[in-house]
Design a protein around this nucleic acid. Structure first.
Length: 264
DNA sequence: ATGGTGGAGCATCCA
């Protein structure tokens, strides 16, 4: 079962490229971040035509997440449990395929947190605390789950092209990295570094020719429960979709690329 | 030190 995550930076503006990738990659489940539309504006029919059930937690202009699944989902949760959030940043569902074991999938768009320090950074750290509590709560069930999304955290220096320039940024500040480490320390597996090492990026800024210079960041992650990690068979980063030359020119690429794992 | 890009939606805010 293939489970993917992609920050699409507006599903409306990105639709042709997003659908191209779905047709090629054929994920069983994919969580999307920054859809930037309300539920009613989500292009559900386009995904339903490809065989997906759509579960959406939208928001006007900013944020917004969705979970798309070829298999019907149960227990759909919108919003991070136990956290009062004015933004749409979390969606979770239990996926029960006919031909594979069940897996719970959480899709998250963690706050950026800049400028730091300040109220936006405080919000990021509070969000991470609530997320850690939720992950710990899920671990008590001893079931397979994947928490995937745009974490907006660079876990370590290998995740950024010039670490010394990012030490004061909310994505790389010590408190952010410590909070991410605390989440992992509950017993979760950061799937892609485990599989393919640390030498990859998932985001390239639109500015300053970042893509051409490979000035990237590793900020999109898939964290697995022990039961899901036991089923881990593969995974990857579809970096080619970041290439502005790819596609028919009808829209520009997202600044993030899809990340995915294969569970047996 | 500044500005460089992109999306939403129409003046800026956010990333």
């Amino acid at each position: 079962m293939k489970i993917a995550s992609w920050n699409v930076n507006s599903v409306g503006a990105r639709l042709p490229r997003v659908l191209d990738w779905f047709r090629a990659a054929e994920p069983d489940v994919c969580v999307l971040q920054e859809i930037k539309c309300v539920d009613e504006k989500f292009p559900a029919e386009a995904f339903e035509d490809l065989g997906y059930n759509c579960y959406v937690y939208g928001q006007k202009s900013y944020n917004g997440v969705a979970l798309l699944s070829k298999h019907p989902a149960e227990d759909v949760i919108r919003g991070l449990p136990g956290f009062e959030d004015e933004n749409s940043r979390y969606i979770e569902a239990l996926i029960v395929p006919e031909d594979a074991e069940a897996v719970r999938v959480g899709g998250l768009y963690l706050p950026n947190g800049n400028p730091a320090p300040g109220p936006k950074y405080d919000y990021k750290l509070a969000w991470m605390e609530a997320f850690e509590r939720h992950a710990a709560r899920l671990l008590e069930d001893e079931e397979s789950f994947v928490l995937a999304g745009d974490y907006n955290v660079i876990p370590e220096p290998s995740g950024v092209y010039a670490p010394d320039r990012w030490v004061d940024d909310a994505l790389f500040r010590l408190e952010s990295r410590q909070a991410y480490r605390r989440i992992l320390n509950h017993g979760l597996t950061d799937a892609l570094p485990h599989l393919i090492g640390h030498d990859y990026y998932t985001f390239w800024d639109y500015q300053r020719g970042a893509w051409g210079k490979n000035n990237g960041l590793r900020i999109d992650h898939l964290l697995l429960s022990p039961q899901a990690a036991d089923r881990l068979e593969g995974g990857g980063v579809d970096a080619d979709v970041r290439d502005p030359e790819q596609g028919d020119g009808s829209c520009k690429p997202s600044d993030h690329v899809p990340v995915w794992v294969e569970l047996g």
